[in-house]
Design a protein around this nucleic acid. Structure first.
Lengths: 336, 336
DNA sequence: AAAAAAATCGGAAACGTTTGCGATTTTCTA
DNA sequence: TAGAAAATCGCAAACGTTTCCGATTTTTTT
């Protein structure tokens, strides 16, 4: 049960424990013969370096705090997967925290992460107020925001070009012959404002009338989308396509449409945003706009590493390209 | 940038830093007046205790290593969510590691976690060989296995009663009038052997002939299920229901059936296992057997805490009850 | 071959806590 | 009120590393 320490192998090797440390760290200040002897001995004795002790003196833990609203969410768990893989590839480990729905908990976990002496924090914000909420801590440790646009805030983040995503989605619907496209979902975070703007811009270029059906729900889940869509379908349907602000919302729309006997894509076309893995499921097969989750995660940890290892100051806004994923929920009105 | 330390607030308060430490830790060996004064001062100066320094002396990090094959997997991300929530509620933080598909990486991350001085490890094994693979380390740190049965191994784990799960599922199909039930999927991990056994047991009680269509794929994904199901549907269908060993496999069956024009549940009933969140989606609506993920995660961290905090030796096999989730993919052959 | 340079290694401080022990002061008991 | 008990606090060691600095040895240079 007792771990073998540097001192133990030093005693066994008949050298000082400084020498053992140097042997392991690949320092030049050591003879190659003694180095090999020590390394072999460490192996035999099962020595592994104690990261906690090392952190004490190096002032670096090699820990990255990852805070997400909730990891049981396809979008975030995919991000987490790639982030962890990439981080570990560079010698970092991930400390995972769910920030939940309320700001207080988000602030608490960030503070906790600071106590843990993480080298940096990767955070996908739970609300547009997150920036203000944790601003007191973001100058104490390198931080990068993930997936949420901060627009003009002096804070590094990586996100897709949300505006362009809805723009190309709307144009795609237009090419299929749709002239009445309803935008469905949230509008009150920066990300969703941008998505709405892209839709509006496309409409203007194409001479379409932008139409909205909004939700003030703070979280976009399939259930909130479902409820809102039920309300929507109680009114006359004078549009041929719905652009849902989120795949979750789109799934809610799909459910409500099925319940109401509205055929998708026969009667109504549907397009989502995010490309969460559920959209590729059989019978769902949702056309959507992909956020390049892998690239986002990798870029985010690269950005964070740059801040940590090079002490890079300032902030950078990294905008990634969305891509249209054509599947089965959009009907071609022109060529049958 | 420089963190404020115990020494700093001690100097400001005019006491020794041992006193400050005692004030924060709620020790009895301190006057209530000075304690309050110090606590207030700590607050003003923005002091937060340095966990790595504390860990040095207490020999406890308050860290739990969570290793999962991959976090971007609904089942595991749900487990991770509840595990993190529960752990943090008890003062622990989660260090997340993806073990990937191969044993080497799994061993590597476990070793890494030991170097990190985690207090315990929670692991959902990637293969039946995991137990052997990491056995050298499991006696160096409290460990509990999650979701996989180890049967007779001297190692703590929590899992559902897999055998009972398929048993009640098969009986349910029988009650609906099904007499020819095909068991579809994997059989070569302990968990899946148990599931197959439950199915067989139900068949014997009900005088049914057990029938299998197996896969030797090591991972059960929707895609492997799809490919196997395509092969299955190229043969005559002389059964009325399919029991898929996994929700993922069931989803693959669903996809293949849709492609082949086989109506589910009209022509064929389908039941899965796990109750991953995708099964509740519109148009999917898969009947399945639920693994109580929340309870599993909570029990697992409780078990781990007991080992860590009380030094409990020995091992315990915690078996949880599965529950049948009736949805829309099983047709009632009797009434109606 | 002597001096200079390089290589190799040990000593010791430092990182920021917790905690046992002893010293001092305060409070209580008889 | 004197002595004992309790409360309060400081000192210093310890946790396991890394790394600066100096000492010693070996190698190179002239």
């Amino acid at each position: 049960m007792k771990n073998v320490t540097l001192k133990d192998v030093a005693k066994a090797a008949g050298v000082s424990y400084a020498t053992v440390s140097r042997a392991l760290s690949g320092s030049h200040q050591i003879g190659s013969d003694t180095r090999e002897r020590i390394i072999k001995l460490c192996d035999e004795m099962g020595y592994t370096t104690n990261y906690v002790a090392r952190s004490m003196v190096t002032k670096r833990t090699g820990l990255i705090g990852l805070v997400v609203p909730s990891i049981d969410n396809q979008f975030m768990s995919e991000l987490a997967y790639y982030a962890e893989m990439s981080a570990r590839g560079h010698g970092y480990n991930i400390m995972l925290c769910n920030s939940g729905p309320d700001l207080k908990q988000e602030k608490t976990v960030v503070k906790l992460l600071l106590s843990r002496q993480v080298d940096g924090i990767l955070i996908v914000p739970q609300s547009p107020r997150t920036y203000e909420n944790i601003r007191a801590y973001t100058d104490q440790v390198p931080t990068v925001f993930l997936s949420e646009n901060l627009r003009d805030q002096p804070q590094s983040y990586v996100a897709v070009d949300n505006s362009r995503g809805t723009y190309i989605g709307a144009r795609y619907l237009y090419e299929l012959g749709h002239r009445d496209i309803l935008y469905f979902g949230r509008r009150h975070t920066t990300t969703h404002q941008l998505r709405a703007e892209g839709y509006i811009r496309a409409c203007q270029e194409l001479n379409l009338r932008p139409r909205f059906f909004n939700s003030e729900f703070s979280r976009s889940s399939i259930n909130t989308g479902y409820q809102l869509a039920q309300e929507l379908f109680s009114r006359p349907i004078d549009y041929t396509a719905i652009f849902a602000s989120t795949d979750s919302n789109a799934l809610g729309v799909l459910k409500a449409a099925d319940n109401a006997g509205i055929d998708i894509p026969g009667r109504l076309s549907l397009i989502g945003f995010d490309n969460i893995s559920s959209t590729a499921l059989p019978r769902i097969d949702l056309t959507t706009i992909e956020q390049p989750k892998r690239e986002m995660a990798v870029q985010a940890v690269d950005m964070l590493r740059d801040k940590i290892e090079n002490g890079t100051q300032g902030y950078v806004h990294q905008i990634l390209m969305p891509v249209l994923i054509k599947r089965g929920t959009c009907r071609d009105l022109l060529n049958h």
